[in-house]
Amino acid sequence: MSDEQSTGQRRGLMGRLRNSLKRTRSGLTDGLAGVFSGRRRLDDEMLEELEARLLSADVGIEATETVLNGLLERFGRAEIKDGSSVFEGLQEEIAKVLEPVAQPLRIDAAKRPFVILTVGVNGAGKTTTIGKLASRLQQEGRSVMLAAGDTFRAAAVEQLKQWGEQIDCPVIAQSTGADSASVVYDAYEAARARGVDVLIADTAGRLHTQANLMEELRKIRRVLARQDTASPHETLLVLDGGNGQNALAQAEKFGEAVQVSGLVVTKLDGTARGGVLLALAQRLRVPVRYIGVGEGVEDLRPFDAKEFAAALATE
């Protein structure tokens, strides 16, 4: 990546996003202009090439068909003026799939504490996302408290505490091995007593196929609902952007167990393209709240369909 700027340099947020997502983009449309040039119409060869590229961005068969059909409808067999109109069309078709799910997280100030429960499989990036989200909310002028609900993984509690120290945010924790629901209960009490605006609860990573561990999540929800029937006000599922079609199974199973109300897709700063977002948008229509595009606190970005589509398919 010779054109990659040194990481220390400050860039505008748009620049950051575009830069971070550039790998995402270059993978999808790299050299595509070459394929398009000199073509008069959308022929089978072009469509096949586009299909292959969408599939290898984890878009999945179903959503790929939707995008390509949209493109076909748009251009038909009519003559194409130039290559860039195909790119524009592609962007618009992608954005069309994503737009319905681009709904930012709104924190209702009347609900205090506003409770966010984070769930996900092992290693998706829950704890890191919580650290970044907390910092973001603090910057918006809200007081935040964290609950160290991952009492299973070794040193998970310490990891969250270190985040708390770094961003100066109180963390309610018990020891590893404690009952996760009881930690969350304690944290809720503490948050209410101190008049905190937002409480974010961490949970242990678990594969969605483990029935007993999913039951544990339901218990946390029950405990929270007993305090405030509307709580948790947001249940965020954190997905690893590198995951393929399995992300659908994760979203389905977690959705059944704990009524997921929003998604965060992490690790989109690498070579992973996050095309599975299209598959998710088409199949499940769960709102996408944020995407993670880097290590820094400011790299947790609200999800914007147009921006994402533009980054995914630029000429």
Binding site: G27, L55, S56, A57, D58, V121, G123, D240, G242, N243, G244, Q245, N246, A247, Q250, G270, T271, A272, R273, G275, V276
Partner: peptide, 15 residues
Amino acid sequence: VDAMTGQDAAKTAQA
């Protein structure tokens, strides 16, 4: 490598 990895497995493994 995570068994749930999608198409990116190829790129990452190669790198």
